[in-house]
Design a binder for these strands. Structure first.
Length: 793
DNA sequence: GAGTTTGAAACT
DNA sequence: CAGTTTCAAACTC
């Protein structure tokens, strides 16, 4: 696991932020009214109608599923002169109004089907400055990475993580991380149809759900959020936007595209606005220092999770997906709302339900009075359905990263134990959310999260009536949300960060850190308490994924690395901080290695993160798997860069292609390559390898059988002498007999060696001789038994 | 286990 | 981008 020091973390935004995509986005209205820098935003967010996912229920207090919000009532955006943009549902209670105090944010529209923005700041202290796109699909708001077409293509092929808030979901969860801000969720209207407008860049984007939950800074400085459900988004000048109102209607379905505009808060110095957090149809007040807290309670409590209405945490379709999980702990003053967040990932994505219990929360669902209790040291977050090796879960840490690396046997990845020094207290409002699975076959994986000090008792997961998993959330301040810290700090190379990377809180950025946890790292620890991320059946269960990883590919068995622990490294000079080190290259900590002066551990977090950054600067793909999917029509697996072998003929493990048990491809620059399909050398080699493997298996089986027979023989002969039964006397296996047997065997082995027999043949001869010896022993024993019986008679 | 070979990674 | 050096794993003895 990597730990990013605060210093380094503070450097991340500018250095690793991927702004290329944003720059490439062509705003529909490049009027240049942007604040700091022109960053086009997609105003139109078409909502995909997903009848199955109509209902979104986050509040646990209501058990009955609510009717799905339909896009009939498109999100209306009041751009232009009106300084407020409202995003309200048809139901009066579902109206969410965001009123930034100052309209300093800037928003631009883009003709894409998704809304992209470069920064969202909910508080003056924290901003989400990373480029992102908001799109509404499947009733979810998902933050995806790069919006540019290039990024999209790259994301498909190479597994980059687009930061796009897509329309895969209808929820936008805004929460303050590490601050006393109450989380709020923007629940998008339900759309029955795909976006009509702005399809330019949207097609590719719509299928890549990325960030599921967005946490906005510890303070409510969300300058403006514009949602227009009904029609296209007009270009909004964030400067004119003061209030974002999203209107949402509860009709069953609607085809109207939803457009969102996320304005960039250029000037965060203005008075802070109070944002009403809405979760599961409820609006939770979020008080700002300057404004009186408002509490809006939505009468429609969507308690039960309805498919499609959940926040997707870990999309599985595309590789390199990143989930940001906030574990920040609120400050003492923070009045948190008990929020149950059923998260469902469309397309077989995980369902994540996070419940936050906040004392005094108007909308808290209390299953039972559970005051702050000590939670178990490990709070696994279950993440399921991870199919992509690139998928990562980023868990923001509330405090300085107090992370313990946990090596999971058989897993390439580390478990991250997140320890937050939180002193959260107050009544524990716990509720179990039942997320209705989009399909069966929910998978549960867990990421242990530990709170160091006062931990609250985490609820044990309850089985969902449906295949979906119940998500239980600890009553701690842990949140499955995207931290309010500048998004740029974490956005840029999330996909490239090695697994287990922990980003320490940046100076002045609050106490939020991040832990990058690749999805597949999240294994199936069924420990409690935990937050469960269930995946629909659209994706194979984790076990299925793992099994699939072992399946032969292209005639080659999957690399053993997928099923066995990695090999210990022996680095001596690289300090295990260069890609020479396999541990480091795989994003792993050194554990049980033979390396010297190793820095690839938690004790050298800063150095390690610097090394990671250096590697990423040198090669953004450095930590991505080298073996990826090849071009169409080519082998399913091929080396991403190809090998450069010159002398090995690509038939030794020096060759990365051969080592990965794949054939060289056209991109290889090897000389004298013999690692191709028709290569006779390769065939011979493979044949020999297969033969050797078969031989080993046979020998193993023979030895096992022989041992079993001997054991059985001894067992059967033991009672003979005492009981006089029909068993052979074991006393015949005396020292002399053993020595004689060994001599016979040795003689046989010598003879085999003299005759230059192969090892296999020699072994066969020895075993055969051993069998003969046994037969003689048995015969002698039988004869002795007969004699004994005759004597007894 | 020591020494050699090899090719990726790092460096210039 | 190409050439060189460094490095650790693979390989040989």
């Amino acid at each position: 696991m990597d730990v990013v020091s605060p210093e380094l973390n503070s450097l991340l935004p500018d250095e690793i932020m991927d702004t290329e995509a944003m720059e490439k986005v062509v705003p529909s209205q490049p009027d240049g009214t942007m604040g700091v820098k022109p960053e086009p935003l997609d105003l139109t967010v078409p909502m995909e109608t997903d009848s199955s996912s109509e209902t979104l229920n986050i509040c646990s207090d209501v058990a009955a599923p609510q009717p799905a919000l339909s896009t009939d009532s498109p999100l209306t955006i009041n751009p232009g002169a009106s300084s407020s943009v409202s995003m309200a549902s048809s139901m009066p209670s579902s109206i969410i109004t965001l009123k930034p105090v100052q309209a300093t944010s800037v928003a631009t529209t883009r003709t894409t089907d998704s809304v992209t923005g470069t920064s969202v700041s909910t508080s003056g202290l924290q901003k989400l400055t990373g480029p992102f796109t908001i799109s509404a699909a499947n009733h979810q708001i998902i933050l995806n990475k790069v919006a540019s077409s290039q990024a999209t293509e790259a994301g498909r092929g190479a597994g980059t993580t687009p930061q796009i808030i897509k329309q895969d979901g209808q929820k936008l969860l805004l929460t303050a991380i590490g601050k006393s801000v109450q989380p709020f969720v923007l629940q998008l209207p339900h759309t029955g149809s795909k976006p009509v407008v702005s399809q330019a860049a949207g097609d590719a984007k719509t299928q890549t759900p990325q960030f599921k939950v967005v946490t906005i800074g510890g303070r409510t400085e969300l300058k403006s959020i514009v949602g227009n459900a009904g029609n296209q988004m007009s270009t909004l000048q964030a400067q004119h936007l003061k209030t974002v109102q999203i209107t949402k209607k509860t009709p069953v379905s609607s085809a109207a595209p939803i457009k969102f505009i996320v304005t960039k808060a250029v000037n965060s110095k203005g008075p802070q606005t109070s944002v009403a957090p809405v979760i599961a149809g409820r609006v939770l007040t979020q008080t700002s220092p300057l404004m009186t807290p408002r509490t809006i309670t939505l009468t429609e409590s969507h308690n039960t999770s309805i498919p499609g209405k959940k926040i997707a945490i870990s999309p599985l379709k595309t590789p390199s997906k990143v989930t940001v999980v906030s574990v920040a702990s609120p400050t003492g003053n923070t009045s948190q709302k008990s929020v149950a967040l059923p998260v469902n990932v469309a397309l077989g994505q995980q369902i994540l339900t996070v419940q936050q219990a906040t004392p005094g929360s108007p909308v808290k669902v209390v299953t039972g009075p559970s005051p702050a209790q000590n939670i178990k040291p490990v709070q696994p977050v279950a993440v399921g359905g991870v199919s992509s090796s690139q998928f990562k879960t980023i868990i923001p840490l509330a405090t300085q990263p107090n992370v313990q690396q946990i090596q999971v046997p058989g897993s390439r990845f580390h478990y991250v134990r997140l320890v937050t020094a939180t002193t959260a207290s107050g009544p524990s409002t716990s509720s179990v959310q039942t997320a209705k699975p989009m399909s069966t076959g929910a998978v549960r994986m867990s990421v242990p999260i530990v709170q160091a000090k006062t931990v609250k008792q985490m609820m044990a997961p309850k089985p969902l009536p449906s295949a979906a998993h119940v998500v239980t959330s600890p009553q701690t301040q842990q949140r499955l949300i995207m931290p309010a810290t500048p998004l740029t700090q974490i956005q840029p190379n999330f996909a490239n960060l090695p697994p287990g990377t922990v980003l320490a809180p940046a100076p002045g950025g609050g106490n939020m850190g991040y832990a990058v946890v690749p999805a597949q790292y999240v294994t199936q620890l069924q420990q409690n308490p935990f937050v469960t991320l269930a995946s629909s059946s659209a994706f194979p269960p984790l076990t299925g994924v793992q099994t699939q990883a072992r399946l032969p590919l292209n005639g080659f068995p999957a690399p053993e690395s997928t099923s066995r622990p990695r090999k210990p490294c022996n680095c001596t000079k690289s300090q295990c901080l260069k890609l020479y080190c396999d541990c480091f290259a795989n994003g792993e900590f050194c554990s049980n290695c033979n390396c010297n002066n190793c820095f690839n551990n938690l004790e050298h977090e800063t150095e390690r993160l610097k090394a990671i950054k250096t590697c990423l600067d040198r090669n953004p793909e450095a930590f991505k798997p080298k073996i990826g999917k090849g071009k169409e029509g080519e082998s399913d697996r091929r080396h991403s860069k190809g090998c450069n072998c010159k002398r090995s003929g690509c038939l030794k493990n020096y060759c990365e292609c051969y080592e990965a048990k794949i054939m060289c491809s056209s991109i290889c620059k090897c000389i004298g390559c013999k690692n191709f399909e028709e290569s006779p050398e390769r065939k011979t080699l493979m044949h020999l390898a297969d033969a050797a493997e078969v031989r080993v298996q046979q020998q193993t089986a023979a030895k096992t059988k022989l041992s079993s027979q001997i054991s059985d023989l001894l067992t059967r002969t033991a009672p003979v002498m005492s009981s006089g039964g029909g068993r052979l006397p074991y006393t015949f296996v005396t020292k002399e007999v053993l020595e004689a047997t060994c001599e016979c065997l040795m003689e046989k082995a010598k003879r085999a060696e003299q005759t230059r027999q192969s090892q296999a043949e020699a072994e066969r001869m020895v075993l055969e001789e051993f069998g003969h010896c046994l037969m003689r022993i048995i015969s002698s024993a039988a004869k002795a038994k007969t004699d004994c019986d005759s004597v007894n008679c």
